[in-house]
Structures are given as structure tokens and as C-alpha cells.
Computed example of a mutant assay.
Amino acid sequence: MAGPERRAADGPGSGRPILIAHRGGARGNEENTAPVFARTEQMPVDMVEFDVRRTVDGALILVHDATVHVGGRRFHVAETPVADLRAAVPGLLTLDEFLEQFGKVRPFNLDMKARGYEAEIAAALRRHDVVAQALVSSVHIWSLRRLGRMVPELALGLSRGHLASSAPPPLQPLAARWLRLTLLLMLLPGLWISRARSVMLQHRVVTPWLVRFLRRRGYRVFTWTVDDPGEAARVARAGVDGIASNTPLDIRDAIASR
């Protein structure tokens, strides 16, 4: 299989899952910002992950949540100009700025958070000549399919299992068990429609059987977001191809061997 996830796994240290710096390897207001990615350049990680949304004036920016909370103020990204968000979030990057500064440092996972800007992402990846570096993931099946039609050589990943982290904390273990039982019914049609060849799973739903099932059918399996070394060791033993973490250096030793 082609794509950055394959090259990273085939490189040095291929006896372990590839290590992915989730949102650049940071939490809070620093995540997805230029200072974080500048630090990550010096870290022994295989891939960086970041999130992309579009502002009201059409800028593609690196931000995870639909609403940004800063200093007691709330900014709805889709209703806010990029200049206002820059003033509120130090180090905010547009997609073009990230690709210009960091896009060729190592493979990256771009998580497309909403529908409607597939053409802009495709154009940016082509403009900066980084299609070969990119793995684009999303929960949006038809967005992935459209993007794949625009850039046939682009690696795509379908993200699933969000209920295991979005449910109230006391219910998360129950949600994960339910998802383990029903996930394939939702996952396989989505993979077929989207044409994605990678799967991005919330870590609580990962099992050795599920990983084997998917890998035998040619899919790569990645998991998010694992900050506990014990859980990192568990999903590594399950056979995942990559692990995304906010604290990649903390889990690195735990996944050194499967």
C-alpha cells in the first residue's frame, strides 16, 4: 500500500506502531499551533496529526473544535474571520502556512473536521507538493470520497469510535463495549463508500480480532488518542499500525515492541 502511513511503518523502528503526535503533541491552547510544531520537529515521532476547519472568510485553519474558548470569550470558527482568531490564538496557522513551514518535515495526518472544503484541501496539497506526505482522515464519508476523486493518489482514513470518548465518563466503558459489537456494521459500508484504506479508531474499541479482520482485508489501522503507557502497550499488542498521542514521548517506550 502506498501512502505516508506505509512509508513511516517501513522505516527505522518498524517493529513497533508508528508514533503520531496528536495535534502536534500538545493539549489546550497550544495544540495545533506553530510553536508546538516547531518543537515537534525535534521529537522522535513518525507523523504529526492536526485538524482543519474553515473560517467565515474562507481561510482553512488548524483548529480542532468548532468553537474556540479563549479568555472567557467564545469564537465560532465558521462564523469568525481569520484575523479575529489570530488575535485570540497565538501561533494560529492556516493550512498553507503549516504546509509551507512543516509539510515536508515528516508525514502528516490532516483530520478534516467538517464538510464543504474538500477542493481547497486538494488544491493546497497539490500547491505545496505534499500529496505523498499526507494522510487525510475524517468522519465524513462522502467528503473523503470527493477528495479521493480529486486526488486519486491521496491516502485516506475513515475515523470511527467517537462515542467511546464523547459519552459521559461513567458511560464510556459501556459505549466502548457496544461499539465493539456493532462497529463493523457501521464501518464496512463507510469504508466501501469513502474508498479509504486506513481506519482511525478510538482506542477503547480496539481489539486484536478487529485489527486482524481489517488488516487481512488490506486496511491500515490507527488509534487515537492514547496517553497512558499501559493502554499504549495494549493497543500495540493488538497489532495497530499507528498510535496518536498528546504525549508521544511518554508512551514511546511502551510501544517499542509489539
Rank of each mutant, 00 (worst) to 15 (best):
R127T: 11
R252A: 13
V70N: 00
E153A: 12
M200I: 15
A134H: 03
V226P: 00
E100I: 00
T94N: 06
R86C: 01
L181T: 04
V48S: 07
M200L: 15
L185W: 15
A2E: 12
R23C: 08
N246L: 09
A21I: 04
P168Y: 05
W224Y: 15
L62E: 07
M47H: 04
A132R: 12
V206F: 06
H140P: 02
K113F: 11
A232I: 01
R237C: 02
V36C: 02
M1I: 10
R215L: 07
V131H: 06
A2P: 09
V56R: 15
E231C: 05
L19C: 05
G11I: 12
S165K: 13
F108I: 06
Q202P: 01
D10I: 08
G71N: 13
S137M: 06
F37R: 06
E49L: 07
D253P: 00
A164C: 07
W192T: 07
R234Q: 07
M112D: 09
V199K: 02
R149S: 11
F37D: 03
D241S: 10
R146S: 15
I61G: 03
W192E: 10
R127C: 10
T94Y: 08
L92F: 01
A176W: 00
V63Y: 06
S137H: 03
V48T: 13
A196E: 07
L210T: 03
G72D: 10
R74L: 12
A196V: 04
L147M: 05
R126I: 03
H69A: 12
A9H: 14
A155S: 13
L183V: 15
L156E: 02
R53W: 04
T55V: 08
V199D: 02
R215A: 13
D253W: 00
A236D: 08
D250T: 11
R252S: 12
D228M: 08
P248L: 10
Y219S: 09
V206C: 08
E118W: 06
V151Y: 07
S14M: 06
S198T: 14
G148Q: 06
P17V: 10
R160G: 00
V130H: 08
A256E: 14
E153F: 00
L158D: 05
G116T: 10
Q133Y: 10
L158E: 03
R146T: 15
L210S: 04
I193V: 15
S166T: 15
L191D: 03
V68S: 04
L188Q: 14
V68N: 00
G230N: 11
E31H: 11
P208G: 13
G157E: 01
I255Y: 09
